[in-house]
Amino acid sequence: MGQPVSASLAGVRVLDFSRVLAGPYCTMILGDLGADVIKVERPGTGDDTRAWGPPWSGEGEAAQSAYFLCANRNKRSLTLNLKSETGRDLARQLAAQSHIVVENFMPGQMAGFGLGYEDLRALNPALVYCSITGFGQTGPYHDHPGYDYVIQAMSGLMSITGAAYGDPAKVGVAISDVLAGLFAVASILAALRHAEATGQGQHIDIALLDTQIAALVNVASNTLVSGNAPRRYGNQHPNIVPYQTFRAADGEFVLAVGNDGQFAVLCDILGRPDLASDPRFASNPARVRYREDLVDELATVFALLPVNTWMRTLIEAGIPAGPINSVPAALADPHTAARGLIEQVGDAPMIASPLKLSETPPVTRREPPHLGEHSEDVLRELLGLDADAVAAYREAGTI
């Protein structure tokens, strides 16, 4: 662990009031890029995900949940009781010295603490203030609680996920949270550039529902253009054929033929050039129309040989294909290692940042913090408090 010579966000301070996943994932990325992220947590309990185990890394009081570890490296933990006036006052002082605030309380709750955008803007006009909620700051659902699972359901994502004739299904990770965190990072960096150029900050309103609907991309576009509700295709694609799983002699794999040229090459590989010249299959629109006929023809051939044989043959010919790995297999893949996607952070293995910047690469400088680990350091460094003052705040339950 160390600091690059010139981190992209060196000198930028983030005051992070968020917890669980969307907000912490956002601020971890900012921390990976060099920002000083101060994670503000409730005294005694902290971020909800600290208790979301097993599995745990470490033992006893030093144990950290794997869930907490996934989104909280490169941060300093400060405990503050925002229900106390002294805690809120310390938060305001810290916000006055920060460039970015991230929070994911229910709309209006931070304002109720005297820590809303307008409150902090008066102290720090250049402040970039990002609010992440389930449904946004406005609209008829703005005061509804919105966890990832609810958003996957309400956005339409579950309606298009799962077996073609089965039940709606959620994605296997909290993808709505992750997407919201990524959209938040992009918005924050744009607002930060504006603030640095003009001295004017702004309030960013990120909603999980908004970002998940935006991430429906071609499916939403198909619906808007056609007026038809999309159906579930299971492991097939609504607009491209063949683009799905096939069963080989010893297991399944994914085939992703994206154009007519690739399809012609595929037919040659399979010893079925007649399929490429068949009017039912010669173009992608035709293949979509006669999907079932084509899939039956291909399935018969793919069932003859094992997965590894098909992988070698297809990839050598430039046809996109891949095995269906388990998570352990994906993490153990030699390409995963070659890309540096797993790193040891203290006692715990973690997924490293996937961002590859040639001059200012992300660096892990800090392990995910224990609750309140940096409270004294932050208060002494940024607010000039001495050890006695910090001890008094701790005795009063402020930190």
Rank of each mutant, 00 (worst) to 15 (best):
F281H: 07
R232D: 06
G384A: 12
R339F: 09
V171Q: 14
P168S: 13
A35G: 04
A197V: 13
P168K: 15
A332N: 14
A299I: 03
E395K: 15
A338R: 13
G261D: 07
I269P: 02
T161S: 14
V128C: 01
L123C: 01
E85P: 07
A229N: 09
D143P: 08
D386T: 12
L90P: 10
R13T: 03
P140Y: 06
Q64L: 13
S159D: 15
N308I: 06
L383G: 09
G46N: 07
A329Q: 15
N284G: 13
L182G: 08
G2C: 09
Q3G: 03
V128W: 00
R121W: 00
Y67G: 06
E395L: 14
E118K: 00
F113L: 10
K170E: 10
Q137Y: 05
R380M: 15
Y233V: 11
L120H: 00
A164G: 12
D293K: 10
L275F: 08
D250A: 11
E85L: 12
S326M: 09
V178C: 12
A249M: 08
R76E: 03
G58H: 03
D250T: 09
R88A: 00
P323L: 07
V390C: 15
Y25M: 13
G181C: 10
L371Q: 09
H144N: 12
W56K: 14
S57Q: 13
